[in-house]
Design a protein around this nucleic acid. Structure first.
Lengths: 268, 268
DNA sequence: GTGACTGTAG
DNA sequence: CTACAGTCAC
């Protein structure tokens, strides 16, 4: 059985239901993890998702900002909470689908200044990474578990359009890359989109709205991730190589999110 | 030669270009008078209007609020200015098309309280009517002249959904109805949409956004007008009766303005 | 309800 | 550039 997991920062789910429906029609994800839904639980368009074939939904919402959700073709069972946000934001939702524990995160962007002291947002971001890494380290690497979402870090030098320039910009600074590395090391996570497309090929999942033509300048970052435990390695590579990709065509649709969806297939 | 004059409060011309293009395709107005364009002159989508077949444009705009424009199939010559707004708002634009002087107004709505003393907006509205009436009285009734626009008064008891109720509400109070009457009397104006559809039949051109189904409740007002001088009487009635109507189907389109377009045909 | 303003955030 | 909040006007 194929389980297609998708992560997508939709940047307002209510403003983007049409695009989500089209993506679901074209790519048929089984588990769709959304970030920046920007609404309360009760404002989430559950009916539209049911019509898309994703009737099972877990939502962590709040007014106006942040907010994450998992919409699934199959029933969603409980999963241990991994909520490590010290500000109490709606940045994490988890569930178990077909025996796979899925944790969906919207990690803080971190503001402009890459320095914990003067910038509490950057401090919050690194604190989030530290707490999450500590929580994950308690878990069993052989258990089937996925950490997905907008992790707001581009970890590798080929995950950014310009490594030297971006090393001074929040999302790719050494402190963040290190924090991301420790998270990956906690359970020996496998980075599926990167396994599919090895370096030095560039892979991006986000392009700023500010560029007139995002394909022309292609100043992208890989901020959206699907990480799985060694317990899912076989399932992820059963077809020989990993089956994972960024759907960058979606970024070119009408009124797009600034993030593209990222998918990975597991064969269970 | 037929000259189809249209008045339409579009409630943001930039947000409504698609609807305007569709209306122009379907109804082919020769002179399109817009109110509440809500943009500066330089922000008006002149290219889109040229593509609609309305390449000649006169615009009086300002940032964010009010703003009026005339877009025409035929060239627009100058017309004497009739700008009587004491607040300096962009509420009037005039021009001469095919020998007909057209003056396009967005008269102030007038606030909530129908009393000049405590409500300066209501005072401004009546002041606008008084100054405009005085200016028009200087002109020759036999000259071909049209006063069109969102005049923000429903003059007749069959121009409102409930005469008794609306008599206490700004847009249909005795003071406004009287001001409108004096304007009409200044040059003996002919009210073309009303000439086409005599009382007691109700005619509305505006329905609040607040009603869920504007057709069901039908709490409309006739705020948008096409008034012509006796000098255009023959041209207006050359086909036997006046050819004028409210395009209320447009109010039911997707993302509509709260006003419907009103047209009148002259045969010159 | 809808749109445009300012301000904040990404 | 885009989307939220809160404010104002219609």
């Amino acid at each position: 059985m194929r389980l297609r997991i998708c992560t997508w920062n939709v940047n307002s789910v209510r403003l983007r239901v049409e695009q989500v429906a089209r993506f679901v029609r074209e790519q048929a994800p089984d588990v769709l993890c959304l970030q920046e839904i920007k609404c309360r639980e009760g404002e989430f368009p559950v009916n539209a998702f049911a019509e898309m074939g994703l009737p099972h939904v877990r939502i962590a919402g709040q007014k106006g900002w942040h907010g994450v959700a998992i919409a699934s073709r199959l029933p969603i069972e409980d999963a241990p909470r991994l909520d490590v946000c010290r500000e109490g934001h709606a940045r994490c939702v988890g569930g178990t689908v077909a025996g796979v524990e899925v944790h969906n995160f919207y990690i803080p962007a971190g503001g402009d200044t890459p320095d914990r002291e003067p910038n509490p947002k950057f401090d919050h971001k690194l604190d989030f990474y530290e707490k999450l890494t500590a929580e994950l380290a308690k878990r069993n690497p052989k258990a089937p578990l996925a950490v997905v979402g907008d992790l707001n870090v581009a970890p590798g030098e080929h995950d950014v359009w310009n490594h030297r320039y971006m090393s001074k910009v929040v999302s790719h600074t050494p402190a963040e890359v290190e924090a991301f590395g420790k998270l990956v090391a906690s359970l020996g996570f496998i980075d599926l989109p990167r396994a599919q497309t090895p370096e030095p090929e560039k892979v991006f999942s986000w392009w700023s709205y500010r560029a007139a033509d995002f394909r022309a300048s292609n100043r992208g970052l890989r901020l959206d991730h699907i990480l799985v435990t060694p317990g899912l390695k076989e399932a992820a590579f059963r077809l020989g190589s990993a089956a994972s990709r960024v759907h960058d065509d979606v970024r070119a649709w009408e009124r797009p999110s600034d993030h593209a969806p990222v998918t990975a297939d597991l064969v269970l």
